[in-house]
């Protein structure tokens, strides 16, 4: 087995989930690392879309923000922000929305607004950004987030972006056109919504991680898929590509 950190496993597992030729609306941070890694590896024609107005960005290094100059310089088109959301996201042209979360609940609802009560918060977080509409309108949503009991909660303190609401049928009732979260990649494993209950269920554990560890890092009674898989360890080329990307 290769020598790697849990964060490296998370980024590599997330990159593997993106398919060549897809269009991907990329959030900054962990999603951007994974999407850029995919584009450098198995998915050279992955189309990266950043909310700053960069369509088809091809950065040679990881951008620090969603509006770095390298994104505009390498993009197929640079457009206004209203255009990104109105013309490109809203009509359902984008395959995958790639998001992160401060809190995530058992139905994949995301909180990036406040911890605690909205009017008297314990922690004020940055807020919604583009996420509510990305989560609503992309054909599907991938979420990448480190798994801890503070982040994986029974119920989010604030629904910033809707996953599967409170269960089956909620997205359709709300008029949300995309399929919502289909995949959650963490530093411990991979979760997918149960096809019937839509509850996030552990479907794969990463190398060296025990089921007990994953349960301890989850703030609800975690369901485990009957055929639990074991994530393939990072290959040497995958690790080399990730490390080169982060060093660039």
């Amino acid at each position: 087995m290769t020598d790697h950190t849990p964060d490296e496993m998370m980024s590599i597992a997330a990159a593997r989930a993106l398919r060549d030729g897809q269009t991907c609306f990329v959030g900054i941070g962990l999603p951007s690392t994974a999407a850029n890694l995919a584009r450098r590896g198995h998915a050279p024609d992955l189309v990266l879309i950043y909310e700053s107005g960069c369509l088809g960005a091809k950065p040679d290094r990881l951008p620090l923000s969603i509006g770095d100059g390298v994104l505009a310089e390498t993009a197929d088109a640079v457009i206004g922000v209203a255009e990104v959301f109105n013309y490109w996201l809203q009509p359902g042209r984008i395959d995958v929305g790639f998001l992160s979360a401060a809190q995530l609940d058992r139905f994949g609802n995301i909180n990036t607004t406040v911890i605690g009560d909205y009017t008297d918060p314990k922690v004020r977080l940055p807020g919604a950004g583009g996420a509510p509409e990305i989560a609503a309108s992309c054909r599907e949503v991938f979420i990448i987030v480190r798994q801890t009991p503070r982040a994986f909660v029974e119920k989010v303190d604030f629904v910033t972006s809707v996953g599967h609401g409170s269960g089956p049928g909620d997205r359709a009732r709300l008029g949300l056109r995309g399929a919502g979260p289909t995949l959650v990649i963490t530093d411990l494993g991979i979760l997918r919504p149960d096809p019937e209950t839509f509850e996030l269920t552990l479907t794969s554990v990463h190398p060296g991680v025990t089921l007990e560890q994953v349960r301890a890092a989850t703030g609800w009674d975690l369901k485990v898929a009957p055929e639990l898989e074991h994530t393939a360890a990072p290959t040497e080329p995958e690790l080399a590509a990730l490390r080169a990307l982060k060093a660039a």
């Binding site: 922000v81 209203a82 959301f85 109105n86 809203q90 607004t113 909205y118 919604a128 509510p132 509409e133 609503a136 309108s137 604030f158 629904v159 910033t160 972006s161 809707v162 609401g165 909620d170 997205r171 709300l174 008029g175 949300l176 056109r177």
Partner: peptide
Amino acid sequence: MANRYVAGASGLPFAILRGYAGTDL
């Protein structure tokens, strides 16, 4: 926010979008 600016620039009182449904905003 983007649509609020678009409405402002367009001289319209409001803008519409597919957004916010199901969120706490």
